[in-house]
Design a protein around this nucleic acid. Structure first.
Ligand SMILES: [Mn+2]
Ligand SMILES: [Mn+2]
Ligand SMILES: [Mn+2]
Ligand SMILES: [Mn+2]
Lengths: 234, 234
DNA sequence: TAGACGTTTTTGACTGGTCTAAATTAATAG
DNA sequence: CTATTAATTTAGACCAGTCAAAAACGTCTA
């Protein structure tokens, strides 16, 4: 029943909520969907009428449980399709997004299940975003942003790279900073340059805007200062 | 640029043209798309304005070369998607149609090429409908309808079964009258019952409406009456 | 050749999604 | 506490696609 537009709004609100929390403002939605604020106001009204979100005028919106379920269904389809494109049709991680953005509104539940089965129930899409299972039960373990998780000298595993800016994503993929790889923070300057070493030994300087789009999990118990042990689990 | 609706109209007109030829009437289109005649009139006006078809009021429409190209692109995507669903996701031939009908408007050229490549350039969809190649050059060899092609006693290979009526399709699939199988016409009655024997030896009585949806190619040079030779190429 | 009848078009209306321009509101700086 | 400013909402418009009801058309029959 929901139209493409409705699904896109829900998905967008969901993603903003899970990044910065509610309330989600009109302009945040407008930016992320590339619509005018007037358009967004009108749409969130109808979404509120349908019980998919609660709205306080001039403040913002927040998904209701029903809205969150609907959003998660879209997110699930989106990520599953991305995984599928990468896996079965040999798409690059940088190419899957737009295709999935169109398809996500038009695949049936049947299709979704079959894709999931063929891929053997993948946990994450090609960027590392977790794929909600059919019961939509995922708590969204996103990992922590690079500088928040690691001090200089520490290592971690990349859990996820944001796919929001295609250029940033392209850069990260080229640098081999992708889900599953290991990174070590070499240095963090006061002016926001983060230098990391990747598993192939290369060093890359990441401006803050880029570093903030890399999410990692600390390598278990191997703080460089307190512990010389560096046995790697590649 | 064309919307889903525009593509559906073009596809529908194309299929009617290739079945009964132009001009295609308002009501034929309305029937096949399940729209009211008023709606169709309004849409064919805009299609004519865009140069996709020529129209004579109160008579009907005919695709222009541009319209035919656009239609063939949709048909190509549709059939490729059907083949893909059957092949890679294990759909039954009876299940692919609706899914493809939605997806056909939302897959990119890139996607289409990749699917085609993965399937190794398939010639036909699961019902036997030919898949136009990327240059859209296909002349559509559809095969000939069962009673037109075969006299009683003759055999032929099923080239194609119409997918228009899901129930008929289901029946044919159950009877194992599907593209690639061999059928022998046992008897044709004056009142339109066609009895055929399938390769497994079973006989099936097909009412005219069903028989007309099975397209075959005569088994080369093995007319039962004039020739005892029945060497089979399965 | 005049109806009658079925088909097609016209008319007018509605929904969903979008925009621009104008009005309103909330937050903030003086 | 008021004035400026930025964000938001309202007002009014438009487009695509659709339908129901009414009018126009063309054909075929009596
Ligand atoms: Mn989308
Ligand atoms: Mn993604
Ligand atoms: Mn369609
Ligand atoms: Mn088909």
């Amino acid at each position: 029943m929901p139209t493409d537009a409705v699904e896109d709004y829900l998905k967008s609100i969901y993603r903003i909520e899970s990044r910065v929390g509610p309330p989600v403002s009109t302009s945040q939605i407008a930016d992320s969907l590339d619509k005018t604020p007037a358009t967004v106001t009108s749409m969130v009204e109808t979404l509120a009428d349908r019980g998919l979100l609660s709205r306080e005028k001039y403040t913002g919106v927040e998904l209701t449980p029903a809205g969150e379920v609907a959003a998660l269904e879209v997110v699930r389809r989106h990520r599953l399709i991305e995984a599928f494109l990468a896996e079965q049709l040999d798409y690059e991680a940088t190419e899957v997004h737009d295709e999935a953005d169109a398809l996500e509104h038009h695949v049936s539940e049947e299709f979704t299940r079959r894709v999931e089965r063929v891929l053997d129930y993948p946990a994450a899409d090609p960027h590392g975003d977790p794929i909600p299972p059919a019961d939509l039960s995922t708590p969204e373990d996103a990992g922590t942003t690079l500088v928040a998780a690691l001090d200089p000298g520490e290592r971690g595993t990349v859990a996820r790279v944001s796919d929001r800016d295609p250029d940033v994503l392209e850069f990260l993929v080229d640098a081999e900073i992708t889900p599953g790889t290991t990174v070590e923070v070499v240095d963090i300057t006061s002016f926001g340059l983060v230098t990391v070493r990747t598993s192939d030994g290369d060093e890359h300087g990441l401006p803050e805007a880029v570093a903030d789009r890399v999410y990692v999990r600390r390598a278990a118990e191997s703080t460089a200062a307190t512990d010389g042990q560096e046995a790697g689990d590649a």
